[in-house]
């Protein structure tokens, strides 16, 4: 609806104004996001330092997988993640009411109000690292493959959002667990590992994490030309299912909040 587009345009402007008002903070966060991007790149390079091929994935494929995760997290941290940290504070300080009394879907406001432009550095650095890695290992994906990659990354992003929303709704039931968001960062980090790694262990407890492993892996496969249609389809399906379930559970949690306050 037009109204929501207007509201979001205004939100993008107001967040940009805030960036300009608090420039030192922006630079500091920019440095921070660059450091964490570098960390991820060093992480995967150290782990694959001595290993050329693991559970069916080549070293360069794993590096591309981690970099795809970095790019996804860039978007996620820029447009979404700060709102979940704010949600913890909003619930804690009893300010949820002021969102519920507005004539606009509160999930929309609570998910999108804050934008951290400094986190786009992850996206930029990640893209550079991706191009460097692709050329270093002489992988040249076609235009269709690149477009498929971008398209699927979109589904991956919505999947991450849905998982965060689903678990963050628990904060309404247990307001004291405002450190849940920190845990969610690590949970999302599981998408750096491909599902083949988990399947290989035969440890049924971990199978629970399989849906997360599709998020970055399914798109990445398009880049090094090993796409599995099954995985692609599963990611799209899981995205839709999780989005609906997360919204339902969010609404259900709100009913609890408004009954118990």
């Amino acid at each position: 609806m037009q109204q929501y587009i207007n509201i979001y345009r205004r939100l993008l402007k107001i967040n940009f104004a805030e960036l300009l008002a608090y420039r030192a903070n922006f630079i500091s966060h920019l440095i921070s996001s660059c450091c964490w991007t570098l960390f991820q790149i060093i992480w995967i390079n150290l782990l694959t330092y001595k290993n050329q091929s693991i559970f069916g994935w080549k070293k360069e494929d794993l590096i591309i997988l981690t970099i795809s995760y970095v790019i996804l997290s860039g978007f996620h941290h820029c447009f979404l993640s700060k709102n979940f940290r704010e949600l913890a504070k909003i619930i804690d300080y009893g300010q949820l009411d002021s969102y519920l009394v507005k004539p606009v879907d509160e999930q929309f406001l609570l998910s999108l109000t804050k934008v951290e432009y400094s986190q786009l550095a992850r996206f930029l650095l990640g893209t550079v690292a991706l191009i460097v890695t692709l050329s270093k290992f002489q992988i040249y994906p076609s235009l269709i493959q690149i477009l498929s990659y971008i398209f699927l990354m979109g589904f991956g992003l919505v999947t991450i959002y849905s998982i965060w929303l689903l678990l963050s709704s628990l904060m309404i039931w247990y307001p004291q667990i405002n450190n849940l968001v920190g845990f969610l960062f690590d949970l999302t980090g599981v998408s750096r590992y491909p599902k083949e790694m988990i399947l290989k262990t035969n440890n049924y407890a971990i199978f629970f994490f399989l849906p997360i492993t599709l998020i970055a892996a399914a798109p990445s496969r398009y880049l090094f030309n090993k796409a599995i249609t099954g995985d692609t389809f599963l990611l799209v399906l899981e995205c839709g299912v999780l989005f609906i379930i997360s919204r339902l559970f969010w609404k259900f949690s709100l009913r609890f909040y408004t009954s118990a306050s």
Partner: peptide, 15 residues
């Protein structure tokens, strides 16, 4: 605001 400094040190400490 020392977030940049803290992050850099955290990364180094982790590695």
């Amino acid at each position: 605001d020392a977030k940049g400094l803290h992050s850099a040190l955290d990364v180094v400490a982790l590695i």
